[in-house]
Design a protein around this nucleic acid. Structure first.
Lengths: 228, 228
DNA sequence: CAAGAATTGTCACCTAGGTTACAGTTCGGG
DNA sequence: CCCGAACTGTAACCTAGGTGACAATTCTTG
């Protein structure tokens, strides 16, 4: 537990959205927030109402789902350690923006909206940090949207693997089945299967049961950019 | 000019991200910002560095472009009146997140980062407003990404037309060519042509040279949701 | 008002990828 | 240790949609 706290602080201190490490905001977030360890398949947010707030992935990874076209729910991404879900900023109801489900055993830090408000009482710049954080997420989301409409499957898969691998230790395995990847980039599993096989033969990735490991980011980058 | 100021204030007062109209934040934004009228095809952001900040579309609409896969630039959306581009939150370089080009003659309000900081000196909650704004954009971006990967062309087009029409006066024409729509949803113009023709025959939209008008939002919603 | 640019409607051809299905493999829990 | 669930590899078939091209129309700008 003490260990978890230190892990969380270490990670927050490296987070670009939180400003300089000596600002003390990281400590306040950990103080006001709750650290939780969750197993694979567990909802990262409870269902309650006051559950809006900030959730930071300290260790592990969570699958991200999003509502679309009425009632379908599609898996559109995965957030690894260091990522944060801006469940923040209370709104007039409306369904949850994203649903997060642990894809690996994970350590999460949750700070409720009221916790943020408490921090803001003497550290109003916490909202600036949140704005920055959400802005980073926005960048990612836009990237995904643009790639989805502009890139053909091969480049789309390459670009997505790169995005998923960012923020992870290089060479670490990602818990990603082919079905999951297929849903995320909007192609069939068959196609993903073929493309991953090709990537593997080129030495770009290593595959094993339910996981992908990015071996050669530079090469993958070339694949993502080549119009051929 | 005086008129423009009032238009801007009226619009800001209706903006959900800015909090209650009597907070005075709208007035501060207009005071610190600059109102500009721009013609079709004009870059909405100048190239300078201090140009990061907030840009609010008061009247008209801007096309949104996003960098992808190295150097390609894809048009991925259009922002109408009331939308705001969170060019805010200064970062360590990196290319501009989105490029905005006027699709119609537009009136824009620009507030620089330093302007925001000045406001924040006595109204720190302005950052909370910005966080909320960026969060709204995030919701849209996620929506787009999810639709792009999960919906087949017909529903994708329907969903996108709905999104584009939100925040506009019902029944007003949108400056959107078929080529533009095709790029935004990631299909060929031929396909868009066919689908729009079908929508028109169903009375869902009206078409004319370079514009689309959404006539029946409810019906379009049904199209977007029907899995058939 | 006339030349030119942008937009639309529509061909014919064709292939990348969807669909469905099934067998082999790996994993986790009882 | 074994069974069922989840994952992977692959095949046959097929069609939605991409490509490229062209004429007709509508704006626009000099």
């Amino acid at each position: 537990m003490q260990d978890d706290t230190e892990t969380a602080l270490r990670l927050l201190h490296m987070s670009p959205w939180l400003g300089p490490p000596d600002s003390g905001l990281a400590e306040r977030l950990v103080a006001e927030g709750a650290l939780t360890r969750l197993g694979v398949g567990v909802w990262a947010q409870a269902e309650g109402d006051e559950d809006t707030g900030l959730t930071v992935v300290i260790e592990g990874a969570v699958d991200l789902y999003c509502q679309v076209a009425g009632d379908r729910e599609v898996r559109f991404g995965q957030a690894g350690a260091g990522a944060a879900l801006g469940q923040s900023v209370r709104f007039g109801g409306g369904p949850r923006l994203v649903t997060a489900v642990c894809a690996e055993p994970s350590l999460l830090l949750r700070v409720s909206d009221s916790g943020l408000s408490r921090i803001a009482r003497d550290r109003p710049e916490v909202w600036r940090a949140v704005a920055t954080l959400v802005y980073l997420q926005l960048r990612n989301a836009l990237q995904m949207a643009a790639e989805a409409v502009a890139l053909p499957p091969r480049q789309r898969l390459a670009a997505r693997l790169l995005m998923l691998a960012r923020g992870r230790r290089p060479g670490s395995a990602m818990a990603l089945g082919q079905q999951a990847l297929a849903e995320m980039i909007g192609v069939s599993r068959k196609t993903v299967n073929g493309l991953l096989g090709a990537f593997q033969r080129q030495g770009l990735v290593a595959l094993s049961y339910g996981t992908v490991t990015l071996l050669d980011p530079r090469g993958m980058q070339r694949v993502a950019e080549r119009q051929g």
